[in-house]
């Protein structure tokens, strides 16, 4: 279940000290769950949240949903304890907040590796994500994205970033255009995932939809979400349309036909199909299968065969 290329359209924030929300986190079927030890936990409760998330990860069944823990930074008194506990708790990935340089990632990686070794966990098991939340982090995005083989993706955290930029968030997100473009380009150049920031206005579903359409068009893989209510809208925007699915299936069929004929050149409706088209078709079908739009096991098989 936990693979490099699985879908990560929605990463649901769960405050690390909230027992009820942790218990229910798997019910809503987001693609990932992110237990937060950082901003949603007050200083007085850092110890409690760390133990609660630790025992929850050790004990509960999250039904194959990918688990991520956002730890506190190493510039706080909590970061090192978080790493000790979480490497042992074995989430799929540890997410660093406020990453500004490649060294920030490497510093955490060193501590993770030491804990893995101490606990007899194969080195490299714990994957990482880095959240970029400052102008310096944005400018260093590619260096951050390529700093560690453990990284599955980088994410933008907008609130701190826009404050540092002396601006604020607006409905069309013009203030984030550069940061989002930089981040997604860095992620793609590094071959890892790109994840967008939260949309905080829970009651504005239209606003959320517009923002998801924008980040999908920019090339992002998904978005952090603050409530289960946001899952359906994000998944809906990322779902391929019936026309896109039909077209992707035709591309696959053309590949099969070309293979059968022993022909190196693949054509569909008189147009040559090159690698980017094939890749897009595969991605469309991956999305369709993941979102249950294609139930046909045969198609899933064809997708894996055509790779």
């Amino acid at each position: 279940m936990m693979s490099e290329n699985r879908l990560r359209r929605t990463m649901l924030y769960v405050p690390g000290n909230n027992a009820g929300m942790i218990r229910d986190a798997a019910i809503y079927q987001s693609d990932s769950i992110m237990f937060d030890l950082e901003d949603s936990v007050s200083y007085r409760e850092k110890d409690a949240a760390r133990l609660l998330v630790y025992y929850s990860l050790r004990t509960l069944d999250f039904e194959g949903i990918e688990t991520v823990v956002r730890i506190n930074g190493l510039d706080t008194p909590y970061g090192r304890e978080d790493i000790k506990a979480m490497v042992k708790a074995r989430p799929f990935a540890i997410r660093l907040p406020k990453t500004e340089t490649a060294q920030d990632v490497l510093d955490v990686e060193t501590l993770i590796a030491a804990e893995e070794q101490k606990n007899g966990i194969p080195i490299g098991t714990t994957r990482m994500m880095a959240a970029i939340e400052s102008p310096l982090g944005v400018l260093n995005a590619y260096a951050i994205a390529t700093s560690s083989k453990r990284l599955i993706g980088i994410a933008i955290g907008a609130e701190d970033y826009v404050t540092s930029m002396k601006t604020s968030r607006s409905p069309d997100g013009v203030e984030l255009m550069f940061a989002r473009g930089m981040l997604v380009t860095a992620a793609r150049a590094a071959g890892i995932g790109a994840f967008d920031t939260v949309y905080s206005d829970l009651n504005n579903e239209e606003g959320l939809r517009k923002e998801v359409e924008l980040i999908k068009q920019l090339g992002f893989d998904g978005k952090s979400i603050i409530s289960p209510r946001q899952i359906a809208i994000v998944h809906d925007v990322f779902n391929p349309t019936p026309k896109q699915i039909a077209n992707a299936k035709m591309v696959l069929q053309a590949i099969e036909e070309a293979k059968a004929k022993g022909s190196g050149v693949i054509a569909l409706n008189g147009k040559m199909i090159d690698k980017p088209i094939v890749d897009r078709a595969m991605h469309t079908l991956d999305l369709a299968i993941a979102s249950g739009l294609i139930e046909d096991a045969r198609t899933a098989m064809e997708v894996s065969n055509a790779r």
Binding site: A19, I22, D47, A48, L51, L52, Y55, S56, T59, L60
Partner: peptide
């Protein structure tokens, strides 16, 4: 509370009452 929550809360309380920060 689930059992894992009970364990986590109890350990937290013991550490707090013992005045120890590092688990």
């Amino acid at each position: 509370a689930l059992e894992c929550v009970l364990r986590a809360r109890l350990i937290t309380a013991v550490y707090r009452s013992a005045g120890l920060a590092e688990v």
